[in-house]
């Protein structure tokens, strides 16, 4: 189910992309994906699902076996200069130089991507990432979180239009995580398209406009986050009963109800898609049957639960 509709103004367009490594391992299976200009796209999937392979091919680090990718209309192989110039990549691994200073490495990145020096811009980036004070420090003297910031600064040094963040918040403290999401929002405002992979589903839930789920090299689905949650999400209504029940009251057997907590809690599960949730009717019926409750709570299934059910459904 590679259910990505073709988007006219896609900034990144992946078509029939497959990758088989020399070992015979097939990391990607005919992936089609369009990334909209200016969106935040989250790619979710378990370890080894092909997230990093997909990003690596788009960025030019790994050669694809089949299929094509264009970035803003530029083919990543034939027109690699134009395509790569638009992309910034923050890799998953903390791969940094050891002896270089922060300033030198950021300056290097900008030059490598073909941009004329611009100390004012680089200063702004370093200040935004709270790295300005550390600009003369050797990278090896920095903490892991600071190194992650350096990698982000390097990726932004050439003013990319598309930013790939591969597991950006793995092993990152709360403060940096917060800073990073603020920065992502700022970048998006300035028109940068952001594609991130993550294990932290709450991150995708909070940040992304659209979500793609990839498992075993196949893109299972691509959806607007809200419609995905609507479509696959379930809501539950929990009632704390005044007096415990020993069984579901007669006349309500056909309702998706469950008793738990020694009969103290009655849980009603309903679909969020339907116009009529059935809550009003349920409460009326309970009233007629004389079942009183002291508290009620409704909860929505999280993206994580949705994700798990998709991945399980495959396996």
């Amino acid at each position: 189910m590679t259910s990505s509709e073709s988007i006219a103004d896609a900034i990144v367009s992946v078509r029939g992309l497959s990758k088989t490594y020399k070992s015979g391992f097939q990391a990607l299976k005919r992936v089609d994906l369009d990334i909209r200009r200016g969106e935040i796209f989250a790619l979710l999937g378990p370890n080894g699902a092909g997230k990093t392979t997909l990003i690596s091919i788009i960025c030019g680090i790994v050669n694809g076996s089949e299929g094509s990718v264009t970035v803003d209309g530029h083919d990543i192989v034939r027109d690699y200069r134009a395509a790569r110039g638009l992309i910034g990549l923050v890799p998953q691994e903390l791969s940094t130089d050891a002896f270089e200073s922060v300033w030198a490495t950021v300056k290097f990145s900008r030059g490598l991507f073909g941009k004329a020096p611009n100390p004012v811009y680089l200063e702004r980036i370093l200040r935004e990432l709270s790295l300005w004070e550390k600009r003369d420090a050797k990278i090896m003297t920095l903490s892991g979180g600071m190194k992650r910031r350096v990698l982000i600064a390097k990726a932004l040094a050439h003013e990319p239009r598309v930013l790939f963040l591969d597991e950006p918040t793995a092993g990152v403290d709360v403060e940096l995580r917060h800073d990073m999401w603020q920065m992502v929002h700022r970048l998006r405002k300035s028109g940068v398209t952001i594609i991130l992979t993550t294990h932290y589903i709450e991150e995708a839930e909070e940040m992304a406009d659209r979500i793609g789920v990839i498992t075993s090299g196949e893109l299972m689905l691509v959806e607007e986050k809200h419609s995905l949650m609507r479509k696959l999400g379930k809501k539950q209504l929990s009632l704390q009963l005044q007096a415990p029940l020993s069984a579901i009251p007669p006349g309500l057997e056909s309702w998706p109800l469950e008793l738990s907590d020694n009969g103290q809690t009655l849980t009603y599960t309903f679909d969020t898609q339907g116009e009529d949730t059935g809550i009003a009717e349920l409460l009326r019926k309970l009233g007629e049957l004389g079942v009183d409750f002291k508290d009620l709570r409704s909860s929505e299934s999280s993206l994580e639960e949705i994700f798990v059910s998709i991945v399980r459904g495959r396996a």
Binding site: C59, I61, A83
Partner: peptide
Amino acid sequence: AGTIYELLSAPV
């Protein structure tokens, strides 16, 4: 060191 990723992803 793994920093080769940058060289490979650069428009060079």
